[in-house]
Design a protein around this nucleic acid. Structure first.
Lengths: 203, 203, 203, 203
DNA sequence: GATGAATGAGTTTTCATTCAT
DNA sequence: GATGAATGAAAACTCATTCAT
């Protein structure tokens, strides 16, 4: 039924949003299923009708985030602008997306490994992370190749190495920002560093 | 005296090594004090005679690691070679040190934030991380300035930005390697990327 | 609903009664939650569904006792008999109530201070004890004033001092009885002493 | 040896005084043997050379206190003054002695029962308490009889009942003072109440 | 007689998950 | 499909006491 489906979605969303909020406030292990259900206004058992385990919430978070990022990537790739701008735009848009939710991102980033470690999922986790990072770097590599073809980037370097270096700068800015308590803009911080990659520091 | 001291050191070391091993195998939370003591062949209480809490083991790990790194830094800075080599040597030596113990490093890196989060040490933790990173980047900045003075590095860039970008590449390589299950050399991976920083990718 | 509620009450009561019994037999600290649940035929976790901590049982005991005493007080005050009888009746009824459960009373009396000391509640504890004793003495003072107005008690003494002296005798009998292992009647013991207060011992 | 004996006594005293202080500050169970020995500047094992168990310290405290009280009693009984003054003096002197060390007294009073309960000494403890209280009341009874013979106290009452009532007032004042956090004089509080006993409250 | 490292039983509390209603 | 009472494994940490040196 449409009505029934409607209600189910509502409940699922309420669980999800309540969890998000509580996880941000108190961390994953610091939040109990009991709290989640109480704040979401449902019975404890109901939680397990929607998510088989507490951990499964994290997978759900991750999926949503990745879907979002891939969309951003594809949007940028389709545009008709210089490659350097594409790259910068892409990285900056991802950064801006992250800026909206630093706490949850911290959680996902730092919690994931430990959680998956203890459940013996290490294989699928490694696979997953690698796949995700490869996707990210792969797209940067594609842009790099595009840049080489258009004469915007030196063509005597391995494009993958370039992509990795760009990712390094993005990733470093991200990590520094996640670890910091200061309230500065992650996306702006990253921009200046990308310039160095393009210009080089050697004389 | 000497005999007692001897035995004490032995016990402490046995606890430390057993912990290291078990943490690598099963993670910090996945390892119980009970297991550690059983494997170390001591009584449970004895553990707490040496380390006031289970967590205090992590501090001990960290201290040891940091001490080691600072020594490496200083050694490199004193040498009489081109700055680019100094930078590369320094980063590569740190990388080589890390290569010896990937699992434990993973643990320390990913576990730290959550642990300190829950103990309310967030301030001192932030302070600590920042101090450590600032030290690392500070030394890279010093080398950069030295390079500018010797005409080995472009002098129209902010040395701190350069240092951060170098650190980004080092850090990215480290993180990628920590996340990866593959058995490749972190130090070699990093080298090529540092070249890109020196040469730039723009035409 | 009714069935569930029923069962819940039964469980709560079973925990409470088992605790009472074990506390009387072995003291508060001498009784473990494990024992309580085992004897009550429930799982250990279930205990904490009903009482948040082991200590909270003591509060529960205390509340029940105080409620009971206040009722006794009010009953006696409303009667139309000589004040001396009211006072004696009131104290005797309280005494009789206590006689039913000497062991638990001992526990509550001697355990309380130490427990609250360690939980840092000293303020609220002092407040609580004082309030309770003031209530008790306050009612005795009211009766004394009533007796003065009716010409049954000398009116040149401070009623509060009288009330305190009466309370002293009640309290002394109670404490002596609590400390004693003999099986005598606390209420009767007290009666004779109250007479002395009324008659005086000077010639 | 005199020197050896000297040192032994010193160590015993240091343990005793350190214990006193710590017990006052943190309670009996809140103080560990480790703390005591550390503050006393001796090794942990040494403690057990002087006191067979931690609990045995309490017995030692109690013995010292009782010895002191008995001396006070006997001093007062020998004087040539009205009986009423003797009684008041005696009680007031005991009160003054207690005033010097409220915290430790609290400890001894509230801790004793529980501790002895758990060690199965209940018999000897009951015996002991009774003996002590009987001694106290017995001396008050002796003074009462003396008063009756000298025509200072009504002779148609049971002297033991009189003694108990006096003890009640003393004891009540003591208990109220022990439970209170206020800094008033226990001995003065008691005086006024003894007057009521001598005068009576009936018209 | 002093030392202090080793012992290990003992305790409270937490919480994800299950399942009868 | 919702409920929430029951479950019980799990885990860190304490501390009086012992005993080899």
């Amino acid at each position: 039924m449409s009505l029934r489906e409607q209600k189910k979605k509502e409940t699922r969303d309420r669980i999800f949003e309540t969890s998000s909020r509580l996880f941000k406030e108190k961390g994953f292990e610091g939040t109990t299923v009991d709290e989640i259900t109480k704040e979401a206004g449902i019975a404890k058992g109901t939680f397990f009708n929607y998510f088989p385990t507490k951990e499964s919430l994290l997978s759900y978070f991750r999926e949503q985030r990745e879907e979002f990022i891939i969309n951003i990537m594809q949007d940028q790739m389709a545009r008709e602008i210089p490659v350097r701008e594409k790259i910068e735009n892409f990285l900056i848009h991802v950064a801006e997306y992250y800026e909206k939710d630093r706490e949850l991102l911290r959680l996902l980033f730092f919690e994931q490994r430990r959680l998956l470690m203890s459940s013996g999922h290490s294989l699928s986790h490694g696979d997953h992370r690698k796949k995700k990072q490869e996707l990210f770097i792969g797209m940067l590599a594609d842009l790099t190749i595009e840049g080489m073809q258009k004469g915007e980037i030196k063509s005597d370097i391995d494009p993958k190495l370039v992509a990795q270096t760009l990712h390094a700068v993005y990733f470093h800015s991200l990590m520094t920002w996640l670890h910091s308590e200061d309230d500065y803009s992650f996306s702006k911080d990253m921009s200046a560093k990308i310039d160095i990659i393009f210009e080089g520091i050697g004389v």
